[in-house]
């Protein structure tokens, strides 16, 4: 199980997270990403963290280490 965290101050609205894992992320009206789930085991979440150009998404394992 991964924990998903978004640093909204870093997000720039690129939206690749929504492409990688639409069930986990959406963009708010301000264009900034919102996590729809706090936890997941889907590879799409890791993919989304890797694809984010701003490094705004952290996907952490049970020990709090980056799971990407």
């Amino acid at each position: 199980m991964f924990r998903i965290e978004i640093d909204r101050s870093l997000c720039s609205g690129f939206g690749s997270c929504v492409d990688s894992a639409p069930e986990h992320f959406r963009l708010g009206d301000d264009g900034i990403a919102v996590a729809l789930l706090a936890e997941s085991s889907a590879p799409g979440a890791v993919e989304a963290a890797r694809a984010c150009p701003m490094g705004a998404i952290a996907v952490l394992d049970e020990q709090g280490r980056e799971a990407a």
């Binding site: 720039s12 609205g13 690129f14 939206g15 963009l27 009206d29 301000d30 264009g31 900034i32």
Partner: peptide
């Protein structure tokens, strides 16, 4: 930033 994803 709110226009980036839609343009993309």
């Amino acid at each position: 930033p709110n226009e980036v994803a839609s343009v993309r």
